[in-house]
C-alpha cells in the first residue's frame, strides 16, 4: 500500500514537472490560432486552425526580413566564434606557456560582464565603423557573448585529446595549422556542433544590443521585432500576432534543441561543471 502511494506521488510529481515545463508554450500555440474576440475566451484546447495571425505577422511588418537578419547574425556569429575558438583552444589546450592560466581566467571573466557595462563603449565603436542600424554591427557585438564560452568549452575538450596523436603529427613535420585542421578538427566535430549550437541560440535570443543598435523595423532581429509589435493603441496589444510570431521563431530552436539534446547537455555541463 505504502509503495503504491509513493509510486503515485512520484507519478504526480513527474506530471507536474512536465505540465510546468510545457504548458506555457502549448498555450501560446493554442492562442496563436485564435482571432478577434476568440482571444478573450479562455480555451485549453485548440478548436479551429485559423492561420490568419501567421499571415498577419508577415503582412503587417517586415517579419521575413527580421528572420533573415536573425539567421544572418546568428550564422555569422557561429562561424567566427568557432574559428577563433578552435585556434584559441589549440593554444590554450595543447601548449604550455607562461600566463596560460591567467589568460583562461580572464576569458572566463569576460563571460561574466554585464552586457550593459559595454553598451556605451560599443555604441561609440559601432557608430565609428558606420554599422549603426545595421545587422552586421550586431555580429561584432554578439561576439562578446559567444566567444568566451566557445573558447572555454573547446579548450576543455581539446585538452582531453590523446597526446600521441599530436606527437605522431609533429614527427611527420606537421605545422600547428595542419595539426589543428587535419588532426584535431575531425575529432572535435561533436564539441564544435555543441558549442556552435549554444552560440547560435545565444545570438538568436540576444536582445539588448539588437534593441539599442538598430533603429528601423527592417534592420531589426526577431526578438526586438516581437518585443515591439504594437497594436492600434498601447493598451491593445495584438496578442494573436505576438503569439504567432513567438511560435514561428521558437519552433526551429526547440526542434534543434530536442534533436541535439544530449550534445547540448554535455556542452552546458562542460562549460559549467568542469569549467
Amino acid at each position: 500500500m505504502r509503495k503504491i502511494l509513493l509510486r503515485g506521488a512520484f507519478a504526480l510529481l513527474l506530471t507536474a514537472i512536465i505540465l510546468f515545463a510545457v504548458f506555457p508554450f502549448y498555450y501560446a500555440i493554442v492562442s496563436s490560432f485564435k482571432v478577434g474576440s476568440e482571444l478573450f475566451r479562455i480555451d485549453y484546447f485548440p478548436f479551429n486552425w485559423n492561420w490568419d495571425n501567421y499571415a498577419a505577422v508577415f503582412a503587417e511588418q517586415p517579419f521575413a526580413r527580421n528572420i533573415f537578419n536573425s539567421v544572418l547574425v546568428a550564422a555569422a556569429v557561429v562561424v567566427f566564434s568557432l574559428f577563433l575558438g578552435m585556434t584559441g583552444a589549440y593554444a590554450l589546450g595543447r601548449v604550455k606557456f607562461r600566463g596560460r592560466g591567467m589568460l583562461l581566467l580572464t576569458i572566463l571573466g569576460v563571460s561574466m560582464f554585464p552586457q550593459v557595462a559595454v553598451l556605451s563603449g560599443m555604441f561609440e565603436m559601432i557608430r565609428l565603423f558606420g554599422l549603426y542600424n545595421n545587422p552586421l554591427g550586431l555580429i561584432l557585438a554578439n561576439m562578446i557573448l559567444t566567444l568566451p564560452f566557445t573558447v572555454w568549452v573547446l579548450t576543455t575538450f581539446m585538452r582531453d585529446l590523446p597526446v600521441e596523436l599530436e606527437e605522431a603529427a609533429l614527427v611527420d613535420g606537421a605545422s600547428p595549422w595542419v595539426i589543428v585542421t587535419q588532426v584535431f578538427m575531425p575529432l572535435m566535430w561533436p564539441a564544435m556542433v555543441t558549442t556552435g549550437l549554444l552560440a547560435f541560440i545565444a545570438a538568436w535570443n540576444e536582445f539588448l544590443f539588437a534593441l539599442t543598435f538598430t533603429l528601423t523595423n527592417d534592420q531589426r532581429t526577431v526578438p526586438v521585432a516581437i518585443a515591439l509589435i504594437t497594436g492600434a493603441s498601447e493598451h491593445e496589444l495584438p496578442w494573436g500576432n505576438i503569439m504567432a510570431a513567438s511560435v514561428i521563431v521558437t519552433l526551429p530552436i526547440i526542434a534543434l534543441v530536442l534533436i541535439f539534446q544530449r550534445k547540448i547537455v554535455s556542452g552546458l555541463t562542460a562549460g559549467a561543471v568542469k569549467g
Binding site: 510545457v22 508554450f25 536582445f207 526578438p223 518585443a227 530552436i253 534543434l256
Partner: peptide
C-alpha cells in the same frame, strides 16, 4: 520536456 523552457528565447 524540461529543456523546452530553456530553449525558448527570453523575449518570447
Amino acid at each position: 520536456a524540461v529543456l523546452i523552457p530553456w530553449a525558448i528565447p527570453t523575449v518570447v
